[in-house]
Design a protein around this nucleic acid. Structure first.
Lengths: 125, 125
DNA sequence: TTGCTTAAGCTACAATTGTAAACTTAATTG
DNA sequence: CAATTAAGTTTACAATTGTAGCTTAAGCAA
């Protein structure tokens, strides 16, 4: 994913993306609105603006049926991994291990997490 | 560190923080400018604005000597760990291990990183 | 001491973001 | 078919951010 795309997904827009990622299929505004209006307390107009911005920045695709249906162009994986690398670049001088060290070291990991990570790194060839 | 503080350090401001973190002692504008003017191509006025904003948001402390000397209030560790937790909250549903899984899984880790992490999580058994 | 060079403070201004209303067009319903 | 409603488009507007100039005050050199 190009820096252009992901870097421009703002916090509010991300809420829309999350919803689209959760959905298996493309969704019409109605469906999007239904969820965000309640969970976020946003006005329909606000939600529409966010969707439009995402479409114009190429993060969401719109398909005309009876009414437009929206689906994510950028996958959640792409986005998360981009965001993570971005954090590493900006804050950890590009060193992924420093991120993890920081997590370990600031109690960012639960016992469970650590157990799981131990596993994760054990089996790895 | 409160959410208030860290969440408000913007990208440009972060460059100033990084410099202050690197410095062992408080620095006068001159010193800060010297470095950022070259590395970032910023005008003196810009640098001054960033410093002022950091001071007013409480991330940097200023001490009047002959001239003001600036030093970080928020430590780099505090900031990184905050930023990391923030990422986890926003993108990984609060699950630190998902962050790491994503790193592993998107080739965000070099062989070296993995070796080191394996050490880090080595089972003492 | 008087102006010259900066530091510090205040002001500016465009782009982005969060939030939304107003207007226009198309669809649904009586 | 006319009226209502909902979808889609355009416009708005304040806060934040990136970037910087202008003004005033103060220290230093001549």
């Amino acid at each position: 994913m190009s820096d252009n795309l992901a870097s421009k997904i703002t916090d509010s827009e991300l809420e829309v993306m999350k919803l689209l990622w959760r959905a298996k299929d493309a969704l019409p505004v109605t469906a999007i609105r239904e969820q965000l209006q309640e969970s976020k307390g946003w006005e329909p107009a606000t939600i529409k603006t966010l969707i439009s911005r995402l479409v114009s920045k190429g993060a969401v695709h719109q398909e005309k049926r009876n009414v437009y249906y929206y689906s994510p162009v950028i996958t959640q994986k792409e986005y998360s991994s981009w965001a993570t690398k971005d954090l590493i670049t900006r804050i950890y001088n590009g060193k992924a291990r420093d991120l993890i060290a920081s997590l370990v070291d600031s109690d960012g990991l639960s016992e469970d997490d650590i157990a799981e990570l131990r596993d994760m790194f054990k089996v790895e060839e």
